[in-house]
Amino acid sequence: MHPARSIILFTTLSGLGFGLLAWLGVDRSPPTGWVAFVFFAIAYALAVGGLLASTFHLGRPERAWRAFSQWKTSWLSREGICAVATLLVMAVYGAALVFADTHMPVLGFLGALLALSTVFTTSMIYGQLQTVPRWNSALTPFLFLTLSVTGGALLSGRVAVATILLIVAGLVQILWWRKGDKAFEERGHTMGTATGLGHEGEVRSMAHPHTSPNYLMREMMYVVGRKHAQKLRVTALLLMSVVPAILLALPAPHLFGLLAVLSHIAGVAASRWLFFAEAEHVVGLYYGAR
């Protein structure tokens, strides 16, 4: 799949933002006043910035409001609703902390639940697609949720929890890659089943319907990135999990904590790039490719 910059930015940043909101929501003694303001400002900048970035890949962004209507069947619609609900609930919760010095734990829990639902619904946009076997797995929401909670813990300065979660996130990522690498073969989709000609003999694509790439090939058959996939995986894993975990163990928590956050974000972005670039859509079979 084509790794669109807007979608990578969106899933990476808003994942972090909603993760931070979730931790702020369940905090027993949350920050108040200016400190709370800074935390909520960061969380909202990431969450809203990500959501705005996601509208850049729309063909008709001015109609984006219509996307709230089909929550009965569409994960994308559900995501939109969860995101807005989270931002509204957490705005009240945050405003109470910043301006009134008041902690409303029930509202916080509700906001945290909504924040995690937002990440879950985002992940299901990809996880639901049978056409991309690598994504179509229960591990996909698990990976997105783990990364979001990890990033949130890191951003909210929970060193002990973050260290454990960084290691867990790394392991989930490795598991997701290993399972994903086998997914396409396991489903049994071949050029034979795609064309229905498989029982007649071996099928080979002889001529494409068009002489240069079309929308389908640009969007669904992104093969450029696969060449260096293994090296990128190692880089992503190091930046996302290993380096931040080491940095957190060093003294001077503010400096190294900031570096850990930056490293983690870069790692998650690299992992998200691979998430798209390595994903094979079954439509590639019609073109004799993956």
């Binding site: 799949m1 063909g59 996307a67 991309v132 969007e219 669904m220 079954v282 019609y286």
Partner: peptide, 16 residues
Amino acid sequence: SNCIGCGLCAWACPYG
């Protein structure tokens, strides 16, 4: 006139 061009339906279609 209601389509926002998100492209998700094209992703969901196995047949292109």
